[in-house]
Amino acid sequence: MPDKARVAILVSGSGTNMAALLYASRQPGCPYEVVLVSGDKADCGGIALAEAEGVPVARLPKLSKDELFPALDAAIRAAGAEYIALAGFMRVLPADFVSGWDGRILNIHPSLLPRYKGLHTHERALAAGDSKAGASVHVVTAALDDGPLLAQAEVAVQPGDTAEKLAARVLIAEHQIYSRALAEYVSRPYNSEWLTARVGDLAIQMPEAEARTSHGSPGWKLAGKSGKFFAFMADRHHGDRHVLLVVKTSGLDELHALVEQQPEVYCKPAYWGAGGWIGLILDRPDLDWDHVRGWIERSWRAVAPARLTRLMNVADEF
């Protein structure tokens, strides 16, 4: 993995989860660094602690909701952050803020989601007679405490528990799982298994496509014995330095031109290049998945029979 992912943390209170993320970031091999701590309360303990630890902070004045989130967005972008971690940030994010950071905001919630979204999670768990409580890390969406789950930790409910006692133990669990989940999440763009799975989701959407291994590499082809391959994955194959999606070009002239013009995006794959197949470099921070999708479709069209491409070609005209 290249440079560390840059993370901004938003807090509203004492900042214990912020501290857990920060101290984890300073351990050898951690794939992220904390570049900003901010929030909706300029004098909260979390911001004071971050400042004492030498982390850049943005102390915003008391603002209305309409003013707060544009100010936060501006501060986070000015810090060069790529991801946002909510750590006890007690404001509901507006939809336009979330969409501006789509897939790049994480949150820690003190329940075993999807149970007990919102507030008073421990009181609700005790009232329901649950034997287990816990904490969840999830990707933030516009829906409250929704989004894909990344990690969970269970905490036993003990006889005589109060909400305060239970909350204290759940907080310990939160500190354990948040930094690990964040580290794994920011590492995904460089993880060959995750990249292969995402490419596979796109490739298998093409008509009559099927997954098939070729010479030990994951690939996708037209169904049937005579179906041709239209894409392969190459994980640092034959000396290549990158995880590649290998797709068809129109020939060697186009391949060489693309590699020369955009060497940070394309390369000539060691095994397939002689046949006019190009390597699209996937393990890079600015990867555009619409671009990947376009190449998969183009490569599929290059090998698909006319009966499959005819309707797609007609649709393209409208």
Rank of each mutant, 00 (worst) to 15 (best):
P263A: 13
L22R: 10
S179I: 01
L149M: 11
G160Q: 13
S250R: 12
L150S: 03
E33M: 02
A85Y: 00
H237N: 14
H215F: 12
N107V: 02
I105H: 01
A79T: 07
N107G: 03
Q176A: 15
G39E: 05
E317I: 00
V98S: 01
L150A: 02
V186R: 05
P148E: 11
R310T: 04
G100L: 10
E208M: 09
A58M: 06
A142R: 13
V34C: 10
E260W: 04
P269K: 09
T121A: 13
S187F: 06
M233D: 09
E123K: 09
A127M: 06
H291K: 10
A203Y: 14
A315I: 05
F230N: 04
A211G: 14
Y116N: 09
I47C: 04
Y32P: 13
I105A: 04
L72R: 07
G39Q: 04
L10M: 13
R236Y: 11
F232Y: 15
L86H: 08
P189E: 01
S38P: 08
P189A: 02
K65P: 03
D240A: 15
V37K: 03
I108L: 15
A5L: 03
G100E: 07
K248Q: 13
E260S: 15
A173C: 09
G227L: 04
D3H: 04
A203D: 14
A19L: 14
W272S: 02
S64N: 01
V137Q: 12
K4P: 14
E184Y: 00
K248Y: 04
L63E: 10
E33P: 00
A223Y: 01
S226P: 01
A128H: 12
G216D: 10
F318Q: 13
G29Q: 10
W220H: 05
P56R: 05
M206D: 00
L311S: 07
E297H: 13
I281G: 02
R59L: 05
A8W: 07
P269T: 09
V157M: 09
W220F: 12
R77T: 12
E123S: 10
E53R: 15
A8P: 06
A304F: 08
V137D: 10
D316G: 15
R91K: 15
Y116A: 01
